[in-house]
Structure formats: C-alpha cells, structure tokens
C-alpha cells in the first residue's frame, strides 16, 4: 500500500513538474538548471539514513553518499545565488 501511495505521489509530481517550468525566459536557463540541480542533491536524505546501516562497508557507502550529496547541495545553491546576484536591470544604479 505504501508503494501505491508513493506511485500516486510520483505521477502527480510529473504533471506538477511539467506545469511548473512552462515558459522560462532564456536568461534564466542557467540559474534554473543549476538551481534544480541543487535540488537533486535531495538524495542527501537517503544518504543520511544510509549511515544507520550497521557494518563497515554500509557506513562507508553512506558517508561517501553524504559527502557527494553535500557537494551537490552546497555548491549548487551557492553558485546559483552567485549568478542570480549578477542579474541587474538598467533602471537601478
């Protein structure tokens, strides 16, 4: 039953995702890409849970997953913010 619910959430998310990014102006393509790229670091949640695995090898996999997911999350958000900070309009300054 849990799996069915998760499938249900998945299917609805597809439609939500397709609707969400309908028309994006081209100057935002890069920030949108790197911003959504940072979100894909959400696998950090799975990585954190994986460290609960007992046994050395499982822990090693978990820690590696945490480290790589963190690179994705921290790097992704910071770099997106750096780019967006540069977008200026001619009206100000």
């Amino acid at each position: 039953m849990t799996m069915l619910l998760l499938l249900f959430i998945f299917v609805l998310s597809i439609f939500l995702g397709l609707e969400l990014i309908g028309k994006v102006p081209s100057q935002l393509h890069t920030p949108l890409m790197s911003g959504s790229n940072a979100i894909s670091g959400i696998s950090i949640v799975g990585a954190l849970a994986a460290t609960a695995i007992h046994g050395t090898f499982g822990t090693i996999l978990g820690v590696l997953a945490v480290a790589f997911a963190t690179i994705n999350v921290i790097g992704g958000y910071l770099v997106t913010d750096r780019m967006l900070a540069m977008f200026k309009t001619g009206k100000k300054d």
Partner: peptide, 30 residues
C-alpha cells in the same frame, strides 16, 4: 533528478520522490 527519484522509491521517501521528479521534469523541459 530521475536518480534521486529512484532512490526515493528505494528508501520509500516522499520528499525524494517529489523533488527528484520535479528536477527530472524541469530538466526534460529545458
């Protein structure tokens, strides 16, 4: 994004599924 979505089914976690799907869909649109 799709990989994160699959990992979401692996650990049966809804936030991974939603976030992974959103990224997968937006990446596909781009």
């Amino acid at each position: 994004g799709v990989a994160a979505l699959a990992a979401g089914f692996v650990i049966q976690n809804n936030v991974l599924i939603v976030a992974g799907t959103l990224v997968g869909a937006s990446g596909l649109i781009l």
